[in-house]
Every structure is written in structure tokens, then in C-alpha cells.
């Protein structure tokens, strides 16, 4: 650094029953400070009931350049969707 505090990603659970969702990031020297900074920065208006902070350096992200091979194969597998199958109209509850 000593001046550069690490970056942390902040995730907020808006209310119980929902998953945590990415809200933004903060700089902090340690985990406790990261939580406190996340609280002050991202939850001033009852935005949540639970916080996660994760060191940004620990996140492994996919490369947009790979998104073709990663995600496009799904496009030609439309039989994974229910609308692929035609069912007579008089057949119900399916």
C-alpha cells in the first residue's frame, strides 16, 4: 500500500426470502471495516436485512470473449423449453 485499501464487493439481501444481490463496492482495510462501510454506503434507507462483503480479488469472472461458447449453445436447444411441445387444446393441466 500501504495507501491502497483492497476493494470489496457488496451484496445485500433486501428481505428474508430473497437472495443477496450485488449492490456495489467499497474500499476497506479489513472485513469488519468493509461491512461497516457497506452499511453506511449502501443501506441508508432500509435497503436490506443482511450484507455480504467479498474481496473483489476473490471473484472469478467469465470472459465476455468466451460468451459464445459458454452461452450460445443453449440457443439451439429450444426443446428445453415447454413451448417447444405442441399439445392439443382440449388437453388440460399440462
Amino acid at each position: 500500500m500501504s495507501k491502497n485499501w483492497p476493494l470489496w464487493e457488496v451484496f445485500i439481501r433486501a428481505k428474508n426470502g430473497l437472495s443477496h444481490r450485488h449492490a456495489g463496492s467499497v474500499h476497506a482495510a479489513d472485513p469488519r471495516m468493509a461491512l461497516e462501510a457497506a452499511r453506511d454506503t449502501y443501506t441508508r434507507r432500509m435497503e436490506g436485512v443482511s450484507l455480504w462483503v467479498v474481496p473483489s480479488a476473490s471473484i472469478v469472472a467469465s470472459d465476455p470473449g468466451d460468451s459464445g461458447e459458454l452461452f450460445e449453445p443453449a440457443a439451439d436447444k429450444i426443446y428445453r423449453h415447454p413451448t417447444f411441445y405442441s399439445i392439443p387444446e382440449n388437453v388440460k393441466n399440462i
Partner: peptide, 11 residues
């Protein structure tokens, strides 16, 4: 800022 950094390193 320096104290927080030193504290984190110590911990």
C-alpha cells in the same frame, strides 16, 4: 488510514 492499514496487517 494508516492506523486502519496497520491494524489489518497486525490482525
Amino acid at each position: 488510514r494508516e492506523a486502519a492499514t496497520a491494524h489489518a496487517a497486525k490482525r
